[in-house]
């Protein structure tokens, strides 16, 4: 073979080999490279996680540990999911102000955006339940009522006004709960509330329950007059004495008095 022909072919093949190698490596890397955050808008998501981490370190790490592994003041948050954060933080329960048998609802310390950031951060640590996208309160009202009475009324009362549990604990009133809180509570089972997986109550069924709770605590116009708290017969009995007998005794005093 002539010398020049040979060198051109070997130069070409080495370039091709290099190109092939680069393509292979690049492709393999894209296919198998670890990407922790699988969000649609990857860039925004990692910003949220970063912000969330900052908020976490400032407001939560004292009790829950620097890496959310848990500490003296609070349990581990690895795997609790963004739903837990949305429930606890938007209802104001967390950050906990002081020790109590149960974390009470109070004015939320973090706004909606910050809560989302905290949620994204905690979700990034170990996964866990997340709220589905879309509306959470547009389920079937009739189904929701039936499911509510079977699963929820025994603790939260027939109209979501809350009920007593053992030793100073209580199932809170649902009158101020937003749709995402209710959904998240069902998913995560905060404190002593049991949790309801999606295999137990499907997302549609959860949405139905949320719809019913919002309806009975917020939307529904109660026919028949003032509701007396909707705690059942106890306030009704009180009312008949205070209002009914009270008014009537005043009337008897008036009639019986001799001018």
């Amino acid at each position: 073979m002539p010398k020049t022909q040979r060198s051109r072919r070997s130069r070409f093949s080495s370039y091709a080999a290099l190109l092939l190698a680069l393509t292979l490596v690049g492709g393999l890397y894209s296919a198998f490279g670890a990407s922790k955050v699988k969000a649609e808008d990857g860039a925004n998501q990692s910003i949220a996680v970063k912000e969330g981490r900052q908020l976490y370190l400032q407001g939560c790490s004292t009790c829950h540990g620097l890496n959310a592994e848990g500490g003296a003041g609070g349990p581990s948050l690895i795997g609790v999911g963004s739903s837990s954060v949305i429930f606890q933080v938007s209802s104001g329960r967390m950050p906990l102000a002081n020790a109590a048998p149960q974390a009470p609802r109070k004015k939320a310390k973090y706004g909606a955006a910050q809560t989302q950031q905290l949620a994204a951060y905690i979700q990034s640590l170990g996964g866990g339940p997340e709220l589905p996208s879309g509306r959470l309160d547009d389920g079937d009202l009739v189904l929701g009522g039936d499911l509510f009475r079977t699963n929820c009324a025994s603790c939260h009362n027939f109209a979501g006004r809350g009920g007593a549990l053992t030793r100073s604990k209580y199932a809170p009133a649902l009158t101020e709960s937003e749709a995402d809180e209710i959904y998240a509570a069902m998913q995560t089972g905060p404190e002593n509330m049991p949790r309801f997986t999606d295999n137990q109550l499907t997302p549609d069924e959860k949405r139905a329950i949320v719809r019913y709770v919002r309806y009975v605590t917020q939307e529904a116009k109660q026919p028949g007059g003032a509701g007396l708290g909707q705690y059942g017969p106890v306030p009704e009995g009180l009312a008949v004495f205070l209002i009914g007998m009270g008014l009537l005794i005043v009337v008897t005093l008036w009639i019986g008095a001799r001018a």
Binding site: T150, N157, F158, R161, G162, P233, E236, G237
Partner: peptide, 17 residues
């Protein structure tokens, strides 16, 4: 309250005063 179902119950079950 809903219709009676022997498998359901409400918190705060009381009779009339």
């Amino acid at each position: 309250y809903g219709p009676y179902d022997p498998t359901q119950v409400t918190a705060g079950s009381q009779p009339d005063w």
